[in-house]
Nucleic acid binder design. Structure first.
Lengths: 201, 201
DNA sequence: GTCTATAATTAGATAGAC
DNA sequence: GTCTATCTAATTATAGAC
């Protein structure tokens, strides 16, 4: 790769990182390309050069966020050769909680787009969420055994998502409300264990 | 109350309702006073007349949303003369889930403000959230008995909030992802029972 | 009280210099 | 590739007619 091409990718990546932070924190409309450029330490013109529109920049940012989840889930599968399916489900949940703690942007962006509905939400669901929901990454029924009512699958999915994520997505609120910083290492582990034992008793 | 004063309150209320919907759906910045006026079937000038600024309108909207939670919780307490504390905790959770289904705005607004931090989030926490967190409305330790580790209280609180709310806050996403509409009556009851049994086994 | 008109800012997208 | 300048549209807040 030439020096110029390197520089290109480096700058592009800085912009995507800034955009992911801004979009998940403020939402699509409230986040401005000027602010994103500032966070990325460049100017607004460069954004339109690398991405043609705010919409396309958003897709690049969302893609980066959701790809990091996919990577995480794939790594997790390799490490899980455990015998007991219930203990495997618990460990799977713990890993997901740790991920939610390290990347609250995913949940924040999902809530942001889900409450508004529309094309961006549908794109995320069809492109990234459904593959996760329908794959063995999601420890759905496995945690409950064979007599698990399939009607409960959506409830289990969203209960897990909410239980794992909200305390980290709302970390500053949690700290002010309870005096406890949920992003501290011990707190993350405590939450991971709490949720895992709750969902797979 | 004079006719004019009635009209005043009626209009004011229409604006607050529209604002609550817009702010929880779009967030403070992305929601525009023009759009809110349109939803309330009036004009932007009237908003500045009844409320001095967008900020003050937001506070009125947030107050309405959180007051409805307080009302709900107080009504709930009266109906709960149950003997078994664990069954009382379960019923308390079921009621909260039904509330979250009927009023997803509360959770949506809380996530919106929590992720940004700042004065609005702190105002909500200090004014509305802390009283709930520290009162007997929140079935914290009661559900677990006397040997419940107080360190787990924040984890229980946010696990409950997330488990109860996310499926409804993200209802449109849920419907597209799973094919199931979580706002249907049977789905709400199923979720209420699922979460109640999970958190208080 | 209600509404229209407008001033001052800020937004996304574009054009062109370097 | 990067950056500055600018166009058009939309924003909040204000002033004033009725």
């Amino acid at each position: 790769m030439t020096r110029r091409a390197e520089q290109r990718e480096e700058t592009r990546q800085r912009i995507v990182d800034a955009a992911a932070a801004a979009f998940s924190e403020l939402g699509f409309k409230a986040a401005s390309t000027r602010d994103i450029a500032k966070r990325a330490d460049t100017n607004q013109g460069l954004i339109t050069y690398h991405f043609r529109s705010k919409e396309e920049l958003w897709r690049a940012a969302a893609a980066q966020i959701f790809e990091s989840l996919r990577t995480q889930l794939e790594e997790q599968l390799e490490g899980l050769a455990d015998a007991d399916p219930r203990e495997r489900a618990r460990e799977s949940i713990r890993t997901y909680v740790r991920y939610a703690a390290a990347h609250p942007e995913l949940f924040q962006m999902m809530v942001e787009e889900a409450k508004q509905g529309g094309a961006r939400m549908e794109w995320i669901v069809d492109t990234y969420l459904r593959p996760v929901y329908e794959s063995r990454f999601f420890p759905g029924g496995a945690a409950f055994g064979e007599d698990f009512d399939p009607k409960l699958l959506p409830h289990f999915f969203y209960t897990l998502a909410g239980a794992a994520s909200v305390i980290f997505a709302n970390a500053r609120e949690c700290e002010r409300l309870t005096g406890m910083d949920p992003t501290a290492d011990e707190a993350v582990e405590r939450h991971a264990d709490f949720v895992a034992r709750l969902l797979v008793p």
